[in-house]
Write a protein that binds this DNA or RNA. Structure first.
Lengths: 183, 183
DNA sequence: GTCTATATTCCGATAGAC
DNA sequence: GTCTATCGGAATATAGAC
C-alpha cells in the first residue's frame, strides 16, 4: 500500500473511531512513522484528506454493488449487512454516522460528498429490497425506499447505541432486521 | 435562567449542533457576552460541563417519565417521539447519537453517565411497549426490549440520516415507526 | 517524498484583581 | 461572579533544505 493509501486508510479508521474533529495529522504521522509535514504533502488540508476518504468509500461501494450485481437479493442484503458487522468487530461506527453528527463543522465539499455517498447507499438498498419483494424473497408493506430508510437507520444506530447499552445489542438489531424482512 | 443554567443550555445545543469536540468555551462566552474565564468559574473543565449537561438531560427524562406515568401507552409513545420531533425542528441530532460517535474521546465519567442515560431511555421505551402490548394497543413479535432497540435506533438515526438524504425522511421514518406498531 | 523548523491560531485552563 | 492577562499545549499549515 502506498503512503497515500495508508494515510487514507488510517484517516478513515480515526474518523470512525474518534470523529473527524478529534483526530490530527499527528495521529497519522505517528502511526506511519513519518512527519506531520509529509502527511501535508499528500493532503494539503484536512478537508482534502476527508474528501479522499469519502471518495475511497464511494469507490468501494461501487465495487461492492457491481460485484454482487448478478447475485440473489438475499446475498446482496447480506453483503450490505456485512459492512456493519465488520465495523462492529472493529468497535467503530460507520462513516455516514460519524460525519453526519459533525456535518455543521466540515467544509461544503465534504458535506456534498457525504450526501452523495449516503444517497447511493440508500438507492442500492432500495433496489435490493425492490428486487427481493418482486422475487418473493422479502415481504414488507412500505415503499422499498422507506423500508431501506428503516433498515439503514437500524444498522447505523445499532453501531452507536450498542456502544452504550450492550455490545450484543448490535446483533440483536441486525438479526431482527433480517427476520422482519422474511415475515 | 441563571448563568450556570444558560451555559448548560448552550453547551447542550452546541454538542448536538457541532459535536463535543468542535465547540469551545469561547463559543459559549461569546453568546452569553461574558468571558472565557467566567465559564470556567461555573465549570472548571469541559468534562464538568459535559457531565452537567448529561445530568440535566437525565433529570428532564425522569420528569417526563413521571409526568406521563398515568397516561396511556400511546400518549407515552408520543411523548417519546416528540423529543425527536423537537430536535429535528432545531436541525440538530440527539445527545446520545452525538456523544456515541465521540465516545472514545470523552472522559470516563462522561462515558459512564451517557451509558446510564441511554439505558434509562431504553428501559422507559421497553416499559411503554410492554404496557401497550398488554393493553392491545401495540402489536409486535419481538421482545419489548428488542422492539425498543429498533424504535430508538430508527429515531436516533433518522435525525442523522435525514441531514443527508432529505429532511422529510425524518418524518417518513417516524410515521413508519408508528404505523408499524399498530399493525 | 520526507525532513527540520516555524508561523499562526485556537483552545483549555489558571492566577489574581475587582 | 466576572474581569484582565497569560500560560502551556495542540493543531493546521507552510517554507525551504535534502
Amino acid at each position: 500500500m502506498s503512503t497515500r493509501e495508508e494515510i487514507i486508510h488510517l484517516g478513515d479508521q480515526l474518523i470512525r473511531d474518534k470523529g473527524f474533529n478529534a483526530f490530527s495529522f499527528y495521529d497519522i504521522s505517528k502511526k506511519l512513522k513519518i512527519k506531520n509535514a509529509s502527511v501535508h504533502y499528500h493532503f494539503p488540508t484536512k478537508s482534502d484528506l476527508g474528501l479522499s476518504i469519502l471518495d475511497d468509500h464511494t469507490k468501494k461501494l461501487h465495487e461492492l454493488i457491481e460485484g454482487t450485481a448478478t447475485k440473489s437479493p438475499m446475498v446482496k442484503l447480506n453483503a450490505f449487512l456485512s459492512i456493519y458487522t465488520k465495523i462492529k468487530s472493529e468497535g467503530r461506527v460507520c462513516l455516514v454516522g460519524s460525519l453526519a453528527t459533525d456535518l455543521n463543522t466540515v467544509d461544503p465539499k465534504m458535506a456534498k460528498a457525504l450526501k452523495v455517498f449516503a444517497n447511493e447507499i440508500l438507492e442500492w438498498v432500495t433496489s435490493i429490497l425492490q428486487e427481493g419483494r418482486t422475487k418473493k424473497v422479502f415481504a414488507f408493506q412500505e415503499s422499498a425506499r422507506t423500508k431501506a430508510l428503516m433498515i439503514i437507520s437500524n444498522m447505523l444506530a445499532a453501531l452507536q447505541l450498542s456502544r452504550l447499552t450492550d455490545e450484543k445489542d448490535f446483533y440483536v438489531i441486525q438479526q431482527t432486521v433480517i427476520k422482519d424482512l422474511k415475515s
